[in-house]
Design a protein around this nucleic acid. Structure first.
Lengths: 103, 103
DNA sequence: TCAGTAGTTCGACGGCTATCGTACTACGAA
DNA sequence: TTCGTAGTACGATAGCCGTCGAACTACTGA
């Protein structure tokens, strides 16, 4: 197994500007919605997106470095999980507000 | 008096991507925080910002067109008000979550 | 060991956007 | 009517960023 968590900011290091900037992009918002629907985590590549693999990796990096999601390895796969608890603690209501949008 | 409301999207026209993109900019977030502290509305020019008047006008336009704030004239002045009710209805919790951030 | 798969990194490129100065408009006061 | 003030509109510019292809890494299974 030997999973490894990719580098990400501590809860205290998360800045609201970075989070909002990360969320204010259609592709990344799609990713966040997909993660919200799968609390157990999602394999990055399984999310259907209108971009290439490299662009996908770029967006996942932005989201991870902003503190929106956490990624750990699982063999050759990377499993991403929404950092719900951290975000809810820092900005209570923000995530649910965004996800309640009727697209 | 004869105040006039500047063009802005209807509640149904507001898109979450535009709102998040508008909020994901430091200067604009400063504006939103200032408006949140003054429910009665704020004269645009009274908010201290590290940019020129034209840039300030640009940011206010972005926020207005995204549906974050409403602006009406008052003589030569423009009074801006946070569209709290609309945003709360569309994305319940989002605004309070953002504003609860410890900067 | 070797091939295949999942994903990242790098460099390049084009479009977006935050910024500014200048010119302009609108309103109020003298 | 004239001047001053508040703010917008426009054009230019520089930096950021979303996108891609190609090369690379890491792991699995045969």
């Amino acid at each position: 197994m030997a999973t490894k968590v990719l580098p990400q900011p501590e809860r205290a290091e998360i800045r609201v500007e970075s989070v909002l900037q990360a969320l204010g992009e259609p592709v990344r918002l799609t990713i966040v919605r997909a993660l919200a629907d799968n609390p157990a985590g999602v394999c990055c590549g399984d999310i259907e997106l209108p971009v290439t693999a490299s662009t996908r990796a770029h967006h996942l990096r932005i989201l991870r470095e902003a503190g929106v999601l956490s990624t750990h390895t699982d063999g050759t796969r990377r499993i991403s999980i929404l950092r719900r608890e951290d975000l809810e603690d820092l900005y209570p209501g923000l995530l649910t507000g965004i996800l309640s949008a009727k697209q």
